[in-house]
Design a protein around this nucleic acid. Sequence first.
DNA 1: TTCATGGCGTAGAAAATCTATTGCATGGCG
DNA 2: CGCCATGCAATAGATTTTCTACGCCATGAA
Lengths: 304, 304
Amino acid sequence: MNPYPPLKALVAFDAAMRTGSFSLAAAELFVTPGAVGQQIQKLEEWLGVALFVRQVRQVQPTEDALGYWKRIQPALAQIADASHRLRDRRNSAVVLSMPPGFATKWFASRMASLLRQHPEIELHLNATPQVIDLERESIDLAIRYFDGQAPELDVTLLLQDESRVYANPRYLAPLDLREPDDVARATLLVTTLQPHWPTWLERYSRLSAARIAAIPRIHFDQSLMAIEAARQGQGLILTSPHLVEAELAEGSLVEAFAHALALTQGYYLVHHGKLPLRPAVATVKQWLIDEAGNSVHVPLGPPS
Amino acid sequence: MNPYPPLKALVAFDAAMRTGSFSLAAAELFVTPGAVGQQIQKLEEWLGVALFVRQVRQVQPTEDALGYWKRIQPALAQIADASHRLRDRRNSAVVLSMPPGFATKWFASRMASLLRQHPEIELHLNATPQVIDLERESIDLAIRYFDGQAPELDVTLLLQDESRVYANPRYLAPLDLREPDDVARATLLVTTLQPHWPTWLERYSRLSAARIAAIPRIHFDQSLMAIEAARQGQGLILTSPHLVEAELAEGSLVEAFAHALALTQGYYLVHHGKLPLRPAVATVKQWLIDEAGNSVHVPLGPPS
DNA sequence: TTCATGGCGTAGAAAATCTATTGCATGGCG
DNA sequence: CGCCATGCAATAGATTTTCTACGCCATGAA
């Protein structure tokens, strides 16, 4: 009925075969020799086969034992190995999920510093636009762009988001934008998922709905592509300063207006709230919080 | 330190993965669902990895669980298979050891009947002249040619041995042997291991030592070869009637004298005396005893 | 000869495993 | 729309398994 022998006994058997002695096997397993003897006796009973010939002061494996050992030894090794890997990986590995735009524009440049500070951590980055099931996919930490409302999860605000207007300075120069109304002369680069242009225009400009509707637009379904278009001087982009840090630093984008649009959304760090985090995961979490804290917005002001 | 996860838990895990449900797994293992849940929880703790996402009324394996299962499943199957084989073989198989001469001359002709009567038995015949270690070589039953003195072993007399004189009738005819003294005119086929000719001659003939020493002899170190030589009319053989049954039946050998030499040796059935015999072994033992009981000596008398 | 070694056997202690039960959330069914 | 059946979690207590402690024995070395 039950296809498995007493598995604990197999471990004792393996140790006894390797060491050639119940006593040595017992020492290896941190038990008394008697325990090993009993385990092997139980295995012999279950199999209906003598595995060792007991002689005085020593045991000798039978033919059957040798053959059996040859078969089960690799199986045990396989189990030990697979278990070790999983266990080990989970001790040092951290699986981190975030949206691709954030990964590229904010995280990528900082990742090197994380790995330098914590070389023992094996980082698995999962950059996907979908919101994925943390548990199902064994995600340790995720950065999500949302409003922070998620009971059941442990949620920490990393970066409160805001929207600012950026453009390539060579694109801006001829336009000579001085106040929000002037955007009517520009092209708007619109990201489908963060359609904040209407809000911005309503708040800061005095343009009529008709004139707003007449402004040329190019639509993108990913922030990444919109940012790239802006960098190449295709128009004005209204996006998060966190996503254009590199472009601001290299000067390929500059802020066109000082008018920021506050948003309820932000980049939040989330993880399951039940179990305590493994040390490696806690390390990464803290590092992310620290990095985000240092990543303060330095407004560049309008082009000089 | 310990490379193995709780192995019992692996069995539960495997069942749960296969069935996709703790309850079904529990039914398969003949335990309560709670037991399965606890085992899996223990495994998850040991690995430091969640294996199932508990949802309402169902569980779903994580990615880690799938990967882990893929690795340990073959290992478990290997253990089950190796154990099953050993166990199964030992249930139906019987390893029987005997001297090669006895195997060929007495056992071979009867073996078919044994297998016919007990088709469920898988018989392993080990015909070797050496006396081998029953336990070390996992021999269930052995037939040994000796005097039956073996404490520690369970010993049953199968056939008390005796030595009788046989020859090919065409070899005998011209010699016209009428009484033991007449063997001086013949050639003696001598088996090194059973050197009973001197005893026979001393007991039944009145020949002097010098005349006995003058009789031509051919020496063989195996009974088999001496018997074959006798069959081909090379001389007189002094051997056990049990070994020449077939030749007597076909008439290629006949008994030359009615004088039998009783021996202290015989064919004994031996096995370790500690454990009770497995049913298959007991069956073969009884069959051997019965066969030996029926195998009565039918003296053919001198050639007519 | 004596001693140390390494196995066996047994009884009882310790640990593990299982059962029994309750509670909960939910999906199917009337 | 309410009710019931399902499947898992959590706990405590019972049961089974496993380990230790200890004495015994045979042997080979000092």
